[in-house]
């Protein structure tokens, strides 16, 4: 059942230029915004050493090109406004369609992406998203515990900066449109972070 770890480092060929252009644009944008919002984009997470490691995977097409940047960065919406289960459950959860419609029955209703969303809603049929971040089935990962450690039970941590904690494993999602996997999320990545931040090292804490 167990996928060999070398698959984790497989780098499938991809359209090279496109991504780097996007990246530099986003970086420029991020630099600009950080000037205006002090303590915003790249705030420090206290009492934590962010895990190291990078990953470069495939672009994942989605039924709707959801712009994380517009929501999380430009409009400054907290990650947990939509991924509301993260603080309570092992999964962060894709927001229910009703949540999207809570705003978008009024906002930006003329945009093609919103029209597509409205179509899904009216057909009583939620969109089928393609999963970007995944761990193997023998891994027990819980968002709730990690958020407790790094956000809610972390002295000096402002919940408004939660995206910096999310970024440990998900990268700077607020600089992306649809999410990309930019961290390896393999055992070495997890274990190094656990060692640096005092996480448990018992096998059965994370393996099921």
């Amino acid at each position: 059942m167990f996928v060999s770890e070398k698959n984790l480092f497989k780098r499938p060929g991809k359209k090279a230029g496109q991504r780097s252009v996007n990246k530099s644009l986003v970086l420029l944008f991020a630099l600009l915004t950080s000037v205006f919002f002090v303590g915003g984009a790249h705030a420090e997470v206290p009492n934590a050493t962010p895990p190291k490691g990078t990953h470069s995977g495939e672009d994942v097409p989605q039924p709707i090109d959801f712009p994380h940047d517009i929501h999380a960065d430009i409009n400054g919406i907290n990650c947990m406004y939509c991924h509301t289960y993260a603080r309570r459950s092992k999964v962060a959860g894709i927001p229910p369609t009703s949540k999207c419609m809570g705003c978008h029955s009024i906002i930006a209703t003329d945009k093609p992406r919103i029209q597509k969303l409205t179509e899904y809603w009216e057909n009583n049929e939620p969109p089928e998203w393609n999963k970007v971040h995944d761990v193997p089935d023998y891994v027990h990962f819980t968002h709730e515990k990690h958020l407790q450690r790094f956000v809610f039970n972390n002295e000096g941590m402002d919940v408004a900066n939660v995206s910096e904690v999310c970024a440990f494993c998900h990268g700077e999602v607020k600089e992306m449109t649809v999410a990309e996997k930019v961290k390896p999320l393999n055992m070495g990545f997890c274990v190094r972070c656990h060692e640096q931040n005092g996480g448990p090292s018992d096998c059965w804490k994370c393996h099921k």
């Binding site: 059942m1 167990f2 193997p136 023998y138 018992d202 096998c203 059965w204 393996h207």
Partner: peptide
Amino acid sequence: TYHTPDGLNAQVYNR
């Protein structure tokens, strides 16, 4: 297979 801090005899499938 090893012993956990809960006194359980654990079996780690992926190992």
